[in-house]
Design a protein around this nucleic acid. Sequence first.
DNA 1: CGACATCTTGATCAGGGTCAAACCCAGTGG
DNA 2: CCACTGGGTTTGACCCTGATCAAGATGTCG
Lengths: 237, 237
Amino acid sequence: MTPERALALLRHVPIFQGAQEADLLPLAERGHFLGLMRGRHLFQAGQTVESLYVVASGSVRVYRLARGGRRELTLHVEGPRQLVAGIAAFQSRAVYPAHAQALQSPTEVLALPVEAVRQAVFNTPTLAQAVIAYFARRQAELLGRLDSLVFSELGERLAAYLLDHAAETPHALPTNSELAALLGTVPEIISRKLGEFYRLGLIVLERRTVRVCDVAELARLAGHTVTAEDAAREAGR
Amino acid sequence: MTPERALALLRHVPIFQGAQEADLLPLAERGHFLGLMRGRHLFQAGQTVESLYVVASGSVRVYRLARGGRRELTLHVEGPRQLVAGIAAFQSRAVYPAHAQALQSPTEVLALPVEAVRQAVFNTPTLAQAVIAYFARRQAELLGRLDSLVFSELGERLAAYLLDHAAETPHALPTNSELAALLGTVPEIISRKLGEFYRLGLIVLERRTVRVCDVAELARLAGHTVTAEDAAREAGR
DNA sequence: CGACATCTTGATCAGGGTCAAACCCAGTGG
DNA sequence: CCACTGGGTTTGACCCTGATCAAGATGTCG
């Protein structure tokens, strides 16, 4: 029974697209589903890597803690058909580099033993190729994240977030703490900045639902125009 | 002539260790050497990716610019036998994500056309495997970098740098601007912090050569002890 | 010796982290 | 129906790190 469902899921995972059914089957056979309540952990940073996870439903947040645990930084939030610990699975000294917890209450994931995954990937050139492309993309994302965190200030990051998630449709905001973790700060500051944006008439807030009013100005704040002009200048030098 | 030298170099590149001579030969044939003076660029961020580089001698700095170019952040410095743009080479929408420039005056690199590299890697399972492991390692490094930049403050980062580079042997410091780019700040602050460390008796500075006096205290400042204890606590929860 | 880069240092400022109090809601149970 | 409680939010006061600007000191090299 399980292999059926597992296979159905695997078939729809982006990086497994190129693979033959036959390559996926052994993987599906060795996987098992896991149900989690909101807040439950898939793994903690520092534990030795045993599985790679594919989200079946719900969503999973991957994050790192600052020493002392006072602050946390969300690295990514993965929805259905996305991988969790996809990179850690291929590290030699295999220890999870981050924590992962379920964000929504019925979250279901498929756990795949890492050796099985490694075997499947190493034996199937098309898979290896897909994995390489995936890693490359991930790394580019991470780089983007890095310099937005290092170079730009909170206002820009928040504006960018709002444009991403609430650009045209109203959007239910996560709690301030979740936002803070996402943007690399603390809840209080999120509250202040949102208030500021509201006072400037850029957004409307109604019971944790946000609607963007002034897209143009928000984009300016997010540094989009600047970045574009910048890229041009950079290239020209 | 060139293929000879290129092959000799490739044989010593860590990620090509597992490969057969025969797999490397076509690569070597399509590569060519490039000499660069200090400060010359191998490529700029935003240019389309044409080559992957292997450092033959000297060193290459890979860095990103903040919008406006006011500040820069050094991602890594690669010495002989190391790759530059190793990840970018496998991205589909292939544009360099960073700038790369020679750091020492006679720096020599071997440029390998990306399609040649891709072919070699995709046709040789052991190579693909090595590339995957390499990417995973790189990603872990980047994550470490990220949270040291986000979570810890300058004193800690500088202390960590000093421990890394000058722990027992005296070490010729790079210029303050280079240090600043490495640690994500500006030269003035580096100057102040170094002065502070000196006044505390942690280091001795003599014409840009630094020697660490109080390793223990420096390690404490770097948060090493904290981090360790932390990891333990983390794991225990 | 002059030109130029780098380093040092002071003065000042802004972003944002911290702490604490007040507030705004749900639920929940009396 | 109403206090009571507890999570999340808002706000004020305060402080600290690090950025910026500007002047001077130091060095290095032709």
